[in-house]
């Protein structure tokens, strides 16, 4: 965590006052944070009695780890600049959140674990895609603010254009939307097979459907080009907040009664 925090501080300092050594140190520390998080995830998953019995903390940590991994790989090949900083600010926030969410709800037994596994992978990938959508929306808001207030600073120079950020946010959200739909469908199928009834009425499913519908509204508005760029980006950020709330505050499927 310290390496992660220090790395982000150095990345911020590099944006404000670029120095090659600072930038290199930040990237090295980011890599150290990646290794530490990988080890932590391994350690946590190794302790699980069965794979799907992860806790919310594990999931948040996994999302943060995945974001960190993607940004490190992309930056190595494409020099994505400020995306690294913004994505890892969000990743760091999720890691902090994961630290405060240590409770575990392990399943004693899981039939049809393969179906559940696919459901979890799809749902996690959708959350990662939404997280990136949030990152691009946040960058859009910052750049829009620069352009509106005529602030021509380093952030202005370094941040991509509004059009590019809007496009990336749309792509990430659309991808997350599709993956979440598949995850929900598989989740329902698993419930039908294991619990012998649909779980559409469960709180988790209802809230997930709500967040999915929120993203649907964003996508429709964006595709039909209704509403302003700023307003849509703010709305998209709210959608992600709802996703995180759903992730950490709403009871997960681990609490569904399972009949052997």
């Amino acid at each position: 965590m310290s390496a992660y925090a220090l790395s982000l501080t150095l990345l911020f300092s590099d944006v404000v006052e670029p120095r090659r050594r600072i930038n290199r140190a930040a990237v090295v520390l980011l890599f150290v944070a990646f290794v530490a998080m990988t080890a932590l995830l391994f350690e946590r998953f190794a302790r699980l009695p069965v794979f799907p019995a992860y806790s919310k903390s594990d999931l948040l940590l996994f999302i943060a780890w995945f974001m960190l991994a993607i940004t490190l790989v992309l930056d190595t090949f494409f020099q994505i600049g400020l995306v690294v900083f913004f994505a890892n600010v969000v990743g760091f926030g999720l890691t902090l959140f994961a630290g405060g969410e240590q409770s575990r709800h392990p399943f004693p037994w899981f039939p049809h674990g393969d179906l559940l596994f696919v459901h979890i992978v799809m749902a996690t990938m959708s959350e990662i895609a939404f997280a990136f959508g949030f990152v691009f929306a946040l960058m859009h808001v910052v750049q829009d603010r620069n352009l509106r207030r005529h602030r021509f600073n380093r952030w202005f120079l370094q941040l991509p254009s509004l059009a590019a950020l809007d496009r990336w946010a749309l792509f990430s959200s659309a991808l997350g939307f599709f993956l979440l739909f598949v995850a929900m469908a598989i989740g329902e199928e698993w419930a039908q097979v294991v619990l012998h009834h649909w779980i559409l009425g469960s709180l988790k499913t209802v809230v997930t459907l709500l967040t999915w519908a929120m993203y649907a509204v964003y996508l429709i508005q964006r595709v039909r080009r209704q509403g302003t760029g700023r307003g849509l980006m703010a709305y998209q950020m709210i959608c992600f907040v709802a996703t995180v709330v759903n992730l950490v505050a709403v009871a997960d499927p681990a609490q569904f009664p399972v009949r052997p």
Binding site: F156, S161, A163, A164
Partner: peptide, 19 residues
Amino acid sequence: HSVSVSYAAVQLASKVVGG
């Protein structure tokens, strides 16, 4: 980072509408 007026104008426009 060109410092000509025409470059600055195009740069500013590009930050809004992209390429």
